[in-house]
Nucleic acid binder design. Sequence first.
DNA 1: CGTCAATATCTGTATATGCAGATAAAATGA
DNA 2: TCATTTTATCTGCATATACAGATATTGACG
Lengths: 152, 152
Amino acid sequence: MTGDSSNLREALDPTHCVSYRLRRAARLAAKSYDAALKTTGLKNTQFTLLAALATEGAVSIGALSDLLATDGTTLTRNLEVLVRRGLVKDCASDDARVRTVQLSKKGRNKYQEALPFWQAAQQQVLTGLGAEQWRELEGVLRQIEDACHSLE
Amino acid sequence: MTGDSSNLREALDPTHCVSYRLRRAARLAAKSYDAALKTTGLKNTQFTLLAALATEGAVSIGALSDLLATDGTTLTRNLEVLVRRGLVKDCASDDARVRTVQLSKKGRNKYQEALPFWQAAQQQVLTGLGAEQWRELEGVLRQIEDACHSLE
DNA sequence: CGTCAATATCTGTATATGCAGATAAAATGA
DNA sequence: TCATTTTATCTGCATATACAGATATTGACG
């Protein structure tokens, strides 16, 4: 009895805060991936950026911002680190407002070097999760993003 | 055909990185909660801390660290902000190594003030998600945490 | 009691993150 | 062409996060 109302009560307890739960799981997952990537000198966040650049080629900050759903100011700082390490370089652009970046040769090599380490981490997490749960996860996360976007 | 192997191939594409997906969803969710909490001057992360302290009463850094699955050094810095604002205070402890903190009166008031705003945000996200998906989310996140923990 | 190991927290350092507001350049329109 | 608006990015500021290593205390053992 009171199935729904007790669920609601539970869901409105801050312990079950969706933001907190996601943040917490993300932190723990990040730790696993960081550990796997350790020898490459990359953090999981940096790997994500390299991967995006590897796929996109030359791309503007704005486009990256849309693609990764990351604030542009965050990208500026995160790219700064990779540029300093010589993994990412600026490229020319016709519109002087637009900054376009791409992987350097060193960056492409680093990405190739890191890929198997990332795959190992991903494989481990997927194994611990199962294909079914993985599908569920992707679906639910997409819905959360939609729900949050629609509130703006 | 090739249902599983194509899934695997897809899952091992960095675009589907579990860490990235979680981080991204967490960022977007945080934005919604932060917007809802704006008038209170709290961020969702700070609300989480206040909520934990409201439930736990006087608690050590180590216990909080276990409870919230957050690094102790992170808690030190995050609590610093709340102490500075007078929302959290230190309390006496027999073991001089152990630092124990609790909500101040002002902190309890702030928590009570913020609670309905948090609930509104949580309610909105849950509505956009549905009860079924919410249950799935909690289950999957728990599994991810288990999977990541077991890798240590 | 004194030494050493174990425990709990803090500091230094570095990255991640995003809001507000600044800056610069392109597009628009009179 | 000049003034205004729009667009794209950057800077200043503040918080979140955690690894390594420093510090301080307690506990255990001879």
